[in-house]
Amino acid sequence: MSDAEYVPPKVWKWDQSNGGAFASTNRPTAGATHDAVLPRGKHKFQLHSLATPNGQKVSIMLEELLAAGHDAEYDAWLINIGKGDQFGSGFVEVNPNSKIPAMWDYSGAEPIALFESGSILVHLAEKFGAFYPKDPAKRAQVMNWLMWQMGSAPFVGGGFGHFYAYAPVKLEYPINRYAMETKRQLDVLDKQLAKNKFIAGEDYSIADIAIFPWYGGMVLNRSYNAGEFLDVGIYTNVIRWAKEIDAREPVKRGRCVNTAWGPEDEMLAERHSAADIDRVLAIRKERGTI
């Protein structure tokens, strides 16, 4: 690949070799590539996910619900996107878009298929009446910021993260373009958090749960090893907020779920009870890696 100006062909054709680090996980068509029945555990919520920022939103929410005393026990099953698990027939049945996270809710008369992390958060918040204010004006603010995250984060992950960390070559134009947008978004949050304890006001909500894994990860330098490059230290209000949320025990627990990297004894591919997370957390706390 050269730095010469790209001249688009009249008709674009997919070339898998141009996909970079995630070439094997992307394709220009939808649908299943193989038959694979999703496993099902004993709990009413069946999460199929991976501990990416989008995946962490749902596992954090479930752990927050459990910590608050709600009947939200769940099984969490690993979807290894590097191996193409998201293209299995069972996963495509619950999420035709083949992206994590996806979840089955078996608590009612008929099972409910859920996909898109924001949709799952709203479903759980409404079901349990938690982390989602009843007041219409306050609820609107939570939804505003939840939708902001859903629309903005692709510029951070698929844009900045891809070109800065994963693209086969470093190209100045896209890195500059998406670094600018990432910093603009961080500034939006910083100004909002200068006048609010949490994202949508004074109460912790699904807006915080959705935004933290992405933007909290950025300012805590967990994302793309880009903290210095993005000069994240200037976003003092985001850092204050991120540290407060990061210290919450349910957040620590939720971040463990469906991890498939790091030392083997610190990974947690599946979660079926609180004891599964307890084991991994104890190891991480002893080593100072949490």
Score class of each variant (00 low, 15 high):
Arg279Ser: 12
Ala247Trp: 08
Lys252Tyr: 08
Arg240Gln: 03
Val232Asp: 00
Asp278Glu: 12
Glu264Thr: 15
His272Tyr: 05
Arg240Asp: 08
Arg253Gly: 10
Trp261Asp: 13
Cys256Pro: 10
Glu266Ile: 15
Pro250Trp: 03
Ala242Val: 05
Pro250His: 08
Val238Lys: 00
Glu244Met: 07
Trp261Ala: 12
Pro250Asp: 06
Tyr235Leu: 06
Cys256Met: 12
Arg271Trp: 15
Ala274Pro: 10
Asp231Thr: 08
Thr259Phe: 15
Ala260Phe: 11
Arg248Thr: 04
Ala247Lys: 12
Arg279Leu: 11
Ile277Met: 13
Arg240Ala: 01
His272Cys: 05
Lys252Asn: 02
Glu264Leu: 15
Arg255Pro: 07
Trp261Asn: 14
Glu270Pro: 08
Cys256Tyr: 03
Asn237Ile: 07
Asp231Cys: 13
Ala275Tyr: 01
Gly254His: 10
Leu281Val: 13
Gly233Met: 02
Ala274Gln: 15
Arg248Cys: 02
Ala282Gly: 07
Leu268Trp: 11
Glu264His: 13
Trp241Val: 00
Gly233Ser: 05
Leu281Phe: 11
Arg253Ala: 00
Glu249Arg: 07
Val238Arg: 00
Arg240Pro: 06
Asp265Gly: 08
Ala260Lys: 03
Arg240Cys: 01
Ala269Met: 06
Ile277Phe: 05
Leu268Ser: 03
Ala269Ser: 02
Met267Val: 13
Trp241Ile: 02
Gly254Glu: 03
Asn258Ile: 02
Gly233Val: 10
His272Ser: 05
Trp241Arg: 09
Val232Gly: 00
Pro263His: 05
Arg255Ala: 11
Gly262Asp: 10
Leu230Thr: 11
Val251Ala: 01
Pro263Phe: 14
Arg240Tyr: 04
Ala275Leu: 01
Gly233Asn: 13
Val238Gln: 02
Trp261Glu: 13
Leu281Asn: 08
Trp261Gln: 11
